[in-house]
């Protein structure tokens, strides 16, 4: 998918950003223009242009009051993308394509309102070729999304995400952690802990072919993309139920791990990218 998506992803950061950079989100600081925030004495903010006459006249102590407005700040949106071998999976949807669609959607939505988008692709380490510093230019961001779609995923393991989390020091950021989360539980906990500073949105790339879309009956020779070997499975309704229950348990475990690190609830990106669904999720959590 190239070009801007037809629908924007609307997100509200959980924190009030600070800084001098103007943007679309309500910031912590008071600035010149924007939404009314409060009134302060003239001596606190000696700005004669914003004297609030009504408030000054109402003051029995005849103090002069100045209106203060919320400054609107830009935030940085980062997409940390797991590029381990399991991301090569192609079921009802192409997992890398999904990640790339999400990146493109974020690129379009973030740059439209003046936020920067940064992308870090990781497998066992941070992939230097798939690293994009936060940029407010839409072109490079969209190009990076395309490069994500065409990325080669051979390494197993996702330890690079810890490294990527260390790269995001300093101010809080909105971080989309895009992966299928087929990691050891311990690693998931570590990554969430490393991203605890940020407003983290886990995006679980799922595929209906891996649970609900399983055939009811038949033999399937499973081949692990992460190199865990082959296994013959005799699918039958009872096993399918157990399989789906197991997947559900995995999602629940991920949700509780995310909650433990004050990350948002995971968003399940199943089969195809839907910006509206992501928007709804982001506004609700």
């Amino acid at each position: 998918m190239t070009g801007a998506p037809s629908a924007d992803i609307i997100y509200l950061p959980r924190w009030r950003p600070r800084g001098r950079r103007f943007g679309a989100h309500r910031g912590q600081e008071a600035g010149g223009l924007g939404t009314f925030r409060d009134q302060v004495p003239f001596l606190t903010l000696p700005d004669a242009r914003r004297i609030d006459l009504r408030a000054s006249l109402r003051d029995p102590f005849e103090g002069v009051h100045v209106r203060r407005f919320e400054m609107r700040n830009a935030v940085e949106v980062w997409a940390l993308i797991d590029l381990s071998a399991s991301m090569r999976f192609q079921g009802a949807g192409d997992r890398l394509r999904l990640a790339a669609d999400l990146c493109a959607g974020l690129a379009a939505s973030a740059t439209r309102i003046g936020d920067g988008l940064g992308v870090i692709g990781c497998d066992r380490a941070v992939r230097a070729d798939l690293y994009l510093p936060a940029t407010r230019r839409r072109g490079p961001a969209l190009a990076m999304a395309e490069r994500i779609a065409a990325a080669r995923c051979e390494a197993t393991g996702a330890e690079g995400l810890l490294e990527a989390a260390r790269l995001l020091f300093g101010r809080p950021r909105l971080v989309f952690l895009v992966s299928d989360f087929r990691w050891p539980q311990a690693l998931i906990g570590q990554v969430f802990a490393a991203l605890a500073l940020h407003d983290t949105v886990p995006v679980l790339l799922a595929d209906s072919a891996e649970d609900a879309g399983l055939p009811d009956w038949g033999l399937v020779e499973l081949d692990d993309l992460e190199g865990a070997g082959r296994r013959l499975v005799f699918l039958r309704p009872a096993l399918k139920r157990r399989w789906i229950a197991r997947e559900q348990a995995r999602r629940d475990a991920l949700r509780s791990l995310a909650a433990a690190s004050s990350a948002r609830a995971p968003f399940h990106l199943v089969d195809r990218f839907n910006a509206q669904a992501l928007t709804r999720h982001l506004l609700a959590t």
Partner: peptide, 8 residues
């Protein structure tokens, strides 16, 4: 059938 994890 290539799957992301046979452990699933």
């Amino acid at each position: 059938a290539a799957v992301s994890a046979v452990a699933a």
